[in-house]
């Protein structure tokens, strides 16, 4: 009899409905307010996403205070890279004892953002910055380097400029 009653009265379904109904009520009355967000989505392109300090984004080269590339072409990053996206050409620069990267190519479309290169670098010459909007229209836009047209390893402006928030 008890079982029959339980079958007849949909208490279990009512329990579920109350849970979803509670969330509906909370979100419905606060959806347009910023203070009490009962919804869990962030309105991404308008409200910029935050990343943790250790976030692994795009590979970037660093310069020292004099504006000289820190990299000394030890090729550690090239060797450690699991997907072989880094190509370095050693060279000389006048007035500099250490080797100078004539070319430092980085093919971002194959990069897997593992940070092994940064870890292997003994000179703190490269970092992974916090940029994660890495979309571009052309394939060649993903080939970054220290030289060449529009190829820049130093600033985060090259790719990811197609964010909706900017237009």
């Amino acid at each position: 009899m008890n079982k029959f009653l339980r079958t007849l009265l949909p208490a279990d379904i009512a329990k579920g409905l109350s849970v979803t109904g509670k969330h509906f009520r909370q979100v419905f009355f606060t959806a347009n307010r910023r203070k009490v967000p009962f919804h869990i989505v962030s309105e991404y392109p308008e409200v910029p996403a935050k990343v943790q300090p250790r976030f692994r984004g795009r590979l970037t080269m660093l310069k020292d205070e004099q504006g000289v590339i820190k990299c000394v072409c030890c090729l550690a990053c090239e060797k450690i890279c699991p997907t072989q996206v880094i190509t370095i050409e050693k060279g000389k620069q006048e007035g500099r004892k250490m080797p100078y990267p004539v070319r430092y190519d980085f093919e971002m479309e194959r990069c897997i953002f593992c940070e092994f290169c940064v870890e292997s670098c003994g000179f703190d010459a490269i970092i992974l910055n916090h940029q994660f909007e890495l979309a571009a229209y052309n394939r060649e836009d993903f080939s970054l380097g220290t030289e060449g047209l529009g190829q820049n390893m130093f600033e985060p402006s090259h790719v990811g400029k197609f964010s909706v928030a900017d237009d």
């Binding site: 979100v27 919804h39 989505v41 308008e46 909706v164 237009d167």
Partner: peptide, 25 residues
């Protein structure tokens, strides 16, 4: 969307174009 703690559709083909898009921005 609200049942699932989302906002539902907020930006399908809109919110970024025309007058409302301008105002939203």
């Amino acid at each position: 969307g609200h049942l699932q703690q989302r906002l539902g559709s907020t930006r399908v083909a809109s919110g970024h174009v025309g007058f409302s898009g301008w105002m939203n921005r």
